[in-house]
Design a binder for these strands. Structure first.
Length: 885
RNA sequence: GGGAGUAUAGCUCAGCUGGUUCAGAGCGCCUGCCUUACAAGCAGGAGGUCACUGGUUCGAUCCCUGUUACUCCCACCA
């Protein structure tokens, strides 16, 4: 048996992933089984794998693999998102690097470049997922802009338009001056920032008096069309009906009065710039104010900026402040902290801007999502980009007015134009594309072609999906909208459960991000610790819903665990098996009795843990389930079971125990497989091969048959074996083992503290106070693992022995040499003190009449038991102290 | 400004309907070991006023009041 002592994940992982792919084990087709569907939250097509994806996809894979092993028809559909803003930005950048200006290209040429880019870099993230072991059905890989998804989006747009849920209108939108597009409210992130509050003087027209107005954005005075005060504000009553001069601009604007103004803030006077602030816009509408847009799309000042035209908005702010100061129009400047909206995608400061956009009106879903969407607002779904689904709206200029035609394609649009307006010329299609979320909200439906082809066998079978695993920060972007689409088009929500993962943070609690550079490269981690190790690291730090402070050390723990399993395989593989059957074997005193009780115990223990794990999975407590499996494998199986049945050096193991061991080991691999797919597949195969070799060898079957069987085994995979289910287990046997374990630990502790060699055989005697102390079944185990020659029940405590307690039983280890009286006494005294204190607290309860009167009988009985146990321990300790002293 | 959550060992977290799974786990730490599967290992061990305060109760980590600290979501007052 030449097996390396260090497990090498690399070759194993490559081999088995290819095997799974070759055998098409991830592929799913509708059949008679119960479906278990998961759709991947599609990552950006341009993205690379980061730790958030690792977590998210590991969880999905665990659930999918487990469901598959439970006999469900598991279907995990992968795909990517076209991410219009992010991708278009990257393509623009790439073109710029090649010296090409986007504006010099036609839409078609630009899209050609974009597709090229997508083909080249688009697959990366999905390839990386393979390294993680993700068992996605790659044959179903989708893209939000592929034919099915593109058409689905267009159909939905047309349909919603016809239902009156989509409209085009001029509204104040969040403008991203870097990406040059509108973004939705959800895509604006407000960040606290230190800024200044400028107090500006607005002189009253034709008078020397002035009013002071506070603003954080002095450059917007160029677009001022009014000043507003509270109608009941005593300070400003004299301004009623007057006009004031916008400082530095010279324009006279009216003073209006509205309750909107907060009298406490600033000076209680507010300047109104309807084109550049949503609240000002509303006031402008109310009072019929003029709206002066002073910005170009890229955030520079336009012709309304006068001498500032062409300047960037922030440069302009500086300059205008300087100019106003020189003109004596600034009263004062204060430091001020406020929140400034930034674009989620580009981080540019958002500029409120008036423009014509398309909106989706979700009011009809208000009741359904009251708890999520208290203040539901219309969703701006158009984006001023080329990369994405182009809005299927065509415009027709008819004698000065514009008619809008929404249709599936140009041909349809032309037909409508002809029928409705008797127009036969060309039409102008809307230049904008749809928000990416407008395609992702259809994902669970469009993946199965349920939009274009309602009621098809796939959508009927796979929808609704089982679990959606996603991050909580896209509840509004994505989850809520998917539910809306599901109800609108499938009359059913798209998933049964939503599992919200935590946010991956670094050790300092900071969110992992590219800018901070605090995110490890997942692929490097996999190279270092193996995919199984990294998966385990992710899962152990991620109790459901919590943020996970990621620490590489836990991947190391995962790697070590793989190695531990690997070495257990090495051990078991090396054992020689007796040719005779176990019943006639009489190899040693600690032989088959010990082994058979060991097997019994391990079986019970597995059943017990299996029950735990099932409960954990029911509650999606994956890290608990993994931890329970980890302890079962490491502590119970390796540290206890294997040590119990391990044959003495150079001696063989009996056949029955060996078979049982292989079987237990193999089943352990099944339990662990969803968490650690690679190492378990490898070990499982080796174990199955071993089993088969053994069987065919022993039964004298012909070699041809056995090689055929072997070939067959090599075609099997652990991943579609049947997952174990919990069965009845014998709690009493488990309890007895725990007693034996404590005896062994007691003996080992004595060795450790007294510096005795593990090779020196000791003997143990005990005084049991009641039948809770049962060691007969596990005597052989105690002998073997404690290196104890004999275990004797006695009634009198022996002289010159060291002592420890297991429950209420006193255990003694007679010493040949003299024991250190001082030290032993000290130990005993400490114990005595503890139990006396314990007894006091118990007695305090029992002598409290209110307790005895008020507590239920079982509780009182428990207290009485505590009292009895404590008293007997105290008596025993006193006797020992007496004997020593 | 509105709402929600969290606070338990050095770290990350379990702890179901108040009382023996009530003070736990993993990692880390300490001590001793290369015991022929594994030093990526083996054996043993130490660590906590369950944030602070008051209350309910025979009894509180658990229920209630308040305080403090942190986190998240929503709104966005110039």
């Amino acid at each position: 048996m030449e097996i390396a002592s260090k497990y090498d994940p690399r070759a194993v992982e490559e081999k088995w992933y290819q095997f799974w792919i070759d055998k098409k084990l991830f592929h799913s087709e509708p059949d008679h089984r119960v479906p278990y569907t998961v759709v991947i939250p599609p990552p950006n097509v341009t993205g690379v794998l980061h730790m958030g994806h690792m977590l998210n996809n590991t969880i999905q894979d665990v659930l999918v693999r487990r469901a598959r092993m439970q006999g469900k028809n598991a279907c995990w559909v992968p795909g990517t998102d076209h991410a219009s803003i992010a991708t278009e930005a990257k393509v623009v950048k790439m073109l710029a690097e090649r010296g090409i200006d986007k504006r010099s290209l036609s839409r078609e040429d630009f899209l050609k470049y974009a597709w090229e880019w997508k083909e080249e870099y688009g697959g990366i993230i999905l390839k990386q997922l393979r390294r993680l072991g993700a068992s996605c059905d790659w044959d179903r890989t989708a893209f939000t802009m592929d034919e099915v998804r593109y058409e689905s989006v267009i159909r939905v747009f047309v349909d919603l338009y016809n239902k009156g849920l989509i409209y085009r209108g001029v509204r104040m939108v969040n403008w991203d001056p870097q990406a040059l597009t509108a973004v939705s409210d959800e895509e604006v992130i407000y960040k606290e920032s230190r800024s200044k509050l400028f107090y500006l003087r607005y002189y009253v027209e034709g008078e020397d008096r002035y009013i002071v107005v506070a603003t954080t954005r002095p450059e917007t005075i160029l677009g001022d069309t009014a000043v507003c005060v509270h109608p009941e504000d005593e300070r400003y009553q004299w301004l009623k009906g007057k006009r004031v001069i916008v400082p530095g601009v010279g324009r006279a604007v009216p003073v209006i009065m509205d309750e909107y103004v907060d009298r406490e803030f600033g000076t209680g006077a507010l300047k109104i710039t309807p084109a550049h602030d949503i609240n000002d816009y509303n006031l402008g509408m109310k009072y019929g104010l003029e709206s002066i847009d002073i910005f170009n799309d890229n955030g520079t000042l336009n012709e309304h900026g006068g001498k500032y035209a062409g300047m960037d908005r922030f440069a302009c702010r500086k300059q205008i402040v300087k100019d106003l100061e020189e003109a004596g129009l600034i009263e004062k400047i204060e430091d001020y902290t406020n929140k400034v909206g930034h674009s989620e995608r580009t981080d540019a400061v958002i500029e409120p801007k008036l423009s014509a956009q398309w909106f989706f009106h979700p009011a009809k879903f208000k009741n359904t999502y009251r708890h999520w969407l208290e203040n539901i607002k219309d969703w701006c779904i158009s984006r001023q980009l080329w990369w994405g689904q182009r809005i299927p709206a065509w415009y027709l200029d008819l004698d000065g007015r514009v008619e809008t035609i929404v249709a599936l394609n140009e041909e349809e649009a032309l037909k409508i134009a002809k029928e409705k307006y008797n127009h036969t010329g060309t039409l102008r299609q809307d230049e904008d594309v749809l928000d990416t979320w407008f395609s992702s909200w259809l994902w669970p439906i469009s993946l199965f072609d349920g939009i274009r082809n309602p009621g098809n066998p796939e959508i009927s079978y796979y929808y609704p999906t089982a679990d959606l695993i996603t991050a909580p920060d896209i509840i509004f972007f994505w989850v809520a909208r998917m539910i809306m689409a599901g109800e609108e088009y499938m009359h059913n929500v798209p998933f049964r459960n939503v599992y919200f993962t935590g946010i991956v943070r670094d050790k300092l609690g900071r969110k992992m991000s590219k800018q901070l550079g605090n995110s490890p490269d997942p692929i490097e981690l996999i190279e270092k610790y193996g995919a199984d190790g990294v998966r385990m690291g992710m899962l152990l730090t991620a109790p459901a819903g919590n943020d996970l402070p990621f620490d590489e050390a836990i991947c190391e723990q995962g790697r070590n665990f793989s190695n531990k399993l690997w070495n257990a395989l090495r051990l078991v593989s090396g054992w020689q098996v007796t040719s005779e059957t176990s019943t006639t074997s009489s190899t040693s005193a600690t032989g088959t009795d010990t082994n058979s009780v060991a097997v019994q115990w391990m079986e019970q223990r597995m059943a017990q843990v299996l029950e735990e794990i099932e409960k954990d999975f029911d509650q999606y407590r994956l890290s608990e389930a993994l931890m329970a499996s980890y302890k079962l494998a490491w502590d119970d199986f390796c540290s206890w079971y294997l040590e119990m049945v391990k044959p003495a050096h150079g001696t063989p193991i009996d056949r029955e125990t060996y078979d049982a061991t292989l079987s237990i080991f193999s089943r352990l691999m099944l339990m662990l497989h969803p968490f650690m797919p690679f190492v378990t597949e490898e070990i499982w195969h080796q174990l199955e091969t071993k089993k088969l070799e053994l069987r065919t060898k022993n039964e004298d079957s012909d070699e041809h048959l056995s090689s055929q069987l072997l070939a067959l085994t090599s075609n099997f995979s652990i991943m579609n074996q049947h997952m174990l289910t919990s069965v009845y287990y014998d709690q009493r046997l488990l309890d007895e083992f725990d007693t034996a374990r404590e005896v062994i630990a007691g003996v080992r502790n004595i060795r450790n503290t007294r510096g005795l060699s593990p090779k020196e055989t000791l003997s143990v005697s005990y005084i049991a106070k009641d039948d809770r102390f049962q060691v007969s079944r596990f005597e052989g185990v105690i002998r073997k693992l404690g290196n104890v020659s004999d275990i004797t029940a006695i009634t009198e405590q022996p002289a010159g022995a060291l002592q420890f307690m297991v429950g209420t039983a006193e255990c003694y280890v007679p010493m040949s040499q003299n024991v250190n009286k001082e030290e032993e006494l000290k130990k005993l005294q400490e114990d005595l003190k503890y139990y006396e204190g314990f007894l006091r607290s118990v007695m305090a309860k029992l002598s409290n009449e209110k307790f005895v009167g008020g507590a239920p009988a079982p509780v009182i009985e428990k207290e009485r038991n505590k009292q009895r146990d404590a008293e007997s321990k105290i008596a025993a300790l006193k006797a020992q102290i007496e004997a020593l002293g």
